[in-house]
Amino acid sequence: MIEIIDLKKSFNVKVVLDGVDLAIEDGKTTVIIGRSGVGKSVLIKHIVGLLKPDSGKILVDGKDITKMGEREFTEVLKRFGMLFQGAALFDSMTVAGNVGFPLKEHTDLADKDIRGIVTEKLRRVGLVGVEDMMPADLSGGMKKRVGLARAIVMDPEIVLFDEPTTGLDPIMSDSIANLMSETQKALKTTYIAITHDIALTYKIADMVAMIYEGKIIEHGAVEEMKKNANPVLRQFLAGSAQGPIKVY
């Protein structure tokens, strides 16, 4: 259970998060939607501690991670996995090296065992025989899959997705969306994704939260959200330029 309470963050004079309140349920996929540049990435980076808030709390199982010392927080981080926008694979390592990296760093498993787990996770994301390729030789979609495999290799309780479909063609996007819902259902993991891809949202979300002008304006199950009358949400889900959201 992750609870975000009155989270505020400004960069210089620009207020990005202006009191975000959000509770994320365990075992479900929560999709946070919003326009580019409204602070979705900033929010997700706070959850994994890459950014420190100006004020507010982030509770993971009731403990405030913003007040934690480095050692304690490191333990919390081991329960997280994250898929970055550009997959963030290490250029200097092979696919197997990338996926097996958290195991190698945090466990005492032998190389052979790690290799076994890596192959299994790669198969789970639909990749076979790519272990010894370098990330530079992979396509965008394959990188995302490898990134996903790396994010789930430690069997985390919570996986975060930063724009999982950005830069992919619609077919590849759909394939990634399928993969996400499959893996989520198989492992009963908490998924948190940020995106502005409405098709993806409908495909994977159990819960949807909309962030607008530094706050969560709507939060609820995906079916409820489809019926929600909030004009801002309606405009965003419709993907229309007309409405209360101003286009500059």
């Binding site: 980076k45 890459l50 963030a88 694979l89 290490f90």
Partner: peptide, 9 residues
Amino acid sequence: QIDALYTMA
């Protein structure tokens, strides 16, 4: 990639 390292504890 540096952020990724960090999130991998």
